[in-house]
Write a protein that binds this DNA or RNA. Sequence first.
DNA 1: CGATTTTGCGTTAACGTTAACGTCAGGCGG
DNA 2: CCGCCTGACGTTAACGTTAACGCAAAATCG
Lengths: 372, 372
Amino acid sequence: MVTIREIAQKAGVSIGTVDRALHNRGRVSKATQERISRIIAECRYKPNVFASHLSLAKQYTFAVLTPEPEQDGRYWELPMRGIRKAADELKPYPIRIWPVHYDKYSEASFFRAGEKILKSRSEVDGLVIAPVLSAASETFVRRIPPALPYVFIDSYVPDTSCLSRIAQNPYRSGALGARLMDLLVGGMGTVAVCRMVPRDYHIDDRVNGFTEALRFRKDVEIVSFEADRKTDEAVFYHLAERILAERPSCNGIFVPNSLGHQVAQLLKERVQPGRIHLIGYDLVEPNLPFLKEGWIRFLISQRPDVQGYQGIQLLVQHLLLKNPVPAEMNLPIDIVTAENLDEHVETGPQERSDRPADARAARPSGRRAVRK
Amino acid sequence: MVTIREIAQKAGVSIGTVDRALHNRGRVSKATQERISRIIAECRYKPNVFASHLSLAKQYTFAVLTPEPEQDGRYWELPMRGIRKAADELKPYPIRIWPVHYDKYSEASFFRAGEKILKSRSEVDGLVIAPVLSAASETFVRRIPPALPYVFIDSYVPDTSCLSRIAQNPYRSGALGARLMDLLVGGMGTVAVCRMVPRDYHIDDRVNGFTEALRFRKDVEIVSFEADRKTDEAVFYHLAERILAERPSCNGIFVPNSLGHQVAQLLKERVQPGRIHLIGYDLVEPNLPFLKEGWIRFLISQRPDVQGYQGIQLLVQHLLLKNPVPAEMNLPIDIVTAENLDEHVETGPQERSDRPADARAARPSGRRAVRK
DNA sequence: CGATTTTGCGTTAACGTTAACGTCAGGCGG
DNA sequence: CCGCCTGACGTTAACGTTAACGCAAAATCG
């Protein structure tokens, strides 16, 4: 490992000068500056991040801007879990997480949250943003100082200078849903798609992917149903009632958001098992029992916990470890069924075991042993 | 942050004594030892890993014991990719990866590889093991010095004092395959299961999961076909020929290892599309075109890259960051189809982008933009 | 031209941990 | 009783980086 001291020696200056040159702190003549830069490049000098942080003793604060955790059926708890997991793993690092939540149905609340972060600019070193309110997000992102790195999760605002974006392609996830639905209904029947106003671009793309992928299937009829979330809490429960009433021939329902459980509830009450095939999104808690019992056949998951986890990891890679980071991460589109549900909820990145070694060995697995 | 100096002050000793007490280096009276331990616990002292490693300047070497990367249709390249990815991300850490491969069909070669590692005991600080040869692995693992932490990937030897094990439940993955097959064949027909001698417990468990999950389906007949890998390279291609000849009514084939492409090849040559539904395992390269074209309907993936990646990460968490690690990680059972294939192969953990910021922005995505 | 600022550098004390080394008292054998 | 050993500590110099401080010489100003 080549150190700052060797660089100094080769350049015929002191380490202080090299340090100033490295961090553009000025007080270095142009000639020496260039000489040092050349030598640094030649020797492939990489600063020792351990020594650096030991000396700096800087606290890094990462703000996390997401909707209230309770919204979308407690969906927004999941990214926060991943974020906590990352913070846990990175315990030895001087990192602080600052969660700032907003009401995903109120632009005003979003701007208030954003303002709070920008006002504390000097104390914030990185940002994880879920730009659910797309128009407002765009405005906000433009106001982020260029030196402040930010990472999008869930979706993203295009053409920004974000450090990275971590999301799932919603169009393709819809197309995958279509493929599964096609399989479930055996290539024929009437499939209902549930929509909600106010519209959400991200969700719309899922629907587009779904309908376009099924268009080539001549024997599958697609009908769209729409509800207004403002009317009541159980929007999709009531929407499902309408579907049953207006389309008795319906044998498949596609729910492009996390509210599949509302539809499943109605199916469980009114329809015989296996007659209407339901595909939903997201491993939120209310969905799980219905998936296990078969009222929901497939859930498409976008690994929100991984998104949060990676968001923090990328910031650390960039700021603390000075590593290059991928400009985008397209998370896999996960298909979850009753059969592989356990692995998705139990051993997401949130799970940690703090038990001592002997307790581990003694622990009954409850699961099938691999051998013997 | 509480430092060693504060501990020393509170205990009324010097930092040297505290350090000796911390690392059991002796030369500390019993009374002082206990006093220091008590204070450390009270203050919740955590050593600063930055300072620690700066002072130690220790190189950590992690040996990786897996089959030759080319075996199983280059399957074993995949964990290595994840391992390299981890090493990349952890570049600033003083870490060295030492890959040691063995022929998965030769116990002798496995023991030779193991011996090589044990002989360099003093230079090895951690171990990642894929215990494919289960009997030999058991013998080997018992010989690992207790102080040397090791992590299993792919499968594991039960009742060992491994640091952790990272694997997928093979039985459950087979059950999931059964569910998908049931869907594909519409609940009726003849399904062939391909097996290979010599037997592999891990693979057997997949088959068990598959057959047991389908047993309750009275209209689905399961037939087992077996081939000897020693006979030729294209074992499963020829096995598929036998299946077609002996069971013309067959409408589904389950391949519990990574050789699905051999069967797919024959289907492509002899059978009309959509007549025989094929489910295989693992995203090895030869499988990919067949999945895209539909000759393979589903591939079950166990994320070998993530397994390798996590293996290294866990060792680092344990040894370098002194964090507790989970005793086991049950990786999700991934269902891969033509629709979500891209996300699985493109943006596995191996992908990194080293391009500068401006190149990123200009880069054409080729994929559908999320918004406008 | 003297006074003051600026430029360009060198020096040094941290940051927290580690381990080699020094020291001093008590114990033990001869 | 002397020499030697060892147990139980304290001291200190690293590890590599950072930034405050110091100090000349050069540049600028009145």
